[in-house]
Simulated assay, not measured.
Amino acid sequence: MKAVTVKKIKDELAHQSTSELIELCLQLSKFKKENKELLTYLLFESHNEERYIESVKAYVDELFEQINIKSYFYIRKSVRKILTLTKKYIRYSKKKETEVELLLHFCRKLKDFKPSIKKSPRLIATFDRQIILIKKAVETLHEDLQYDYQLELNNLAENA
Rank of each mutant, 00 (worst) to 15 (best):
89 Y>M: 11
8 K>V: 11
137 A>S: 08
40 T>N: 14
125 A>M: 14
151 L>P: 07
136 K>C: 01
44 F>C: 04
69 I>K: 07
131 I>F: 05
65 E>N: 15
109 K>H: 14
77 K>R: 14
153 L>K: 01
3 A>H: 08
42 L>W: 09
16 Q>F: 06
139 E>Q: 04
140 T>W: 02
152 E>Q: 13
76 R>W: 02
137 A>F: 01
18 T>M: 10
121 P>M: 06
77 K>V: 07
158 E>M: 04
99 E>S: 00
130 Q>G: 04
94 K>S: 03
154 N>P: 08
75 I>C: 03
95 K>P: 08
126 T>G: 00
79 V>F: 03
123 L>S: 05
67 I>M: 11
122 R>C: 11
70 K>G: 15
57 K>Q: 09
126 T>A: 03
98 T>S: 02
121 P>K: 09
35 N>M: 07
41 Y>W: 12
45 E>H: 13
102 L>W: 00
60 V>L: 08
126 T>E: 06
67 I>Q: 03
138 V>L: 07
95 K>R: 14
65 E>M: 15
58 A>R: 09
134 I>T: 02
110 L>D: 01
44 F>M: 09
151 L>F: 07
88 K>M: 04
156 L>G: 06
124 I>G: 00
11 D>K: 07
124 I>L: 06
23 E>W: 11
5 T>C: 05
51 R>D: 12
10 K>G: 07
137 A>P: 00
81 K>T: 09
36 K>W: 10
85 L>H: 03
24 L>D: 02
50 E>A: 12
20 E>A: 06
124 I>R: 04
146 Q>K: 14
155 N>A: 13
101 E>D: 07
1 M>F: 08
123 L>R: 03
105 H>M: 01
86 T>S: 01
70 K>V: 06
70 K>P: 04
94 K>R: 08
30 K>T: 06
78 S>Q: 12
31 F>M: 09
85 L>A: 01
154 N>A: 15
34 E>I: 10
94 K>C: 06
81 K>P: 05
127 F>I: 07
44 F>L: 11
120 S>Y: 06
41 Y>Q: 12
48 N>I: 13
138 V>I: 15
126 T>S: 00
59 Y>Q: 10
93 S>L: 12
156 L>A: 07
2 K>W: 14
51 R>W: 05
98 T>H: 10
157 A>M: 14
76 R>P: 00
25 C>I: 15
87 K>E: 15
124 I>V: 04
119 K>R: 05
67 I>H: 06
103 L>D: 01
18 T>G: 11
91 R>A: 14
7 K>Q: 15
95 K>F: 14
153 L>Y: 02
45 E>G: 10
96 K>G: 02
157 A>K: 08
75 I>H: 04
157 A>H: 11
160 A>E: 12
39 L>H: 10
30 K>I: 04
16 Q>E: 14
136 K>G: 02
49 E>W: 10
93 S>K: 02
11 D>A: 06
48 N>A: 01
89 Y>G: 05
63 L>W: 03
37 E>N: 14
115 P>A: 01
125 A>K: 06
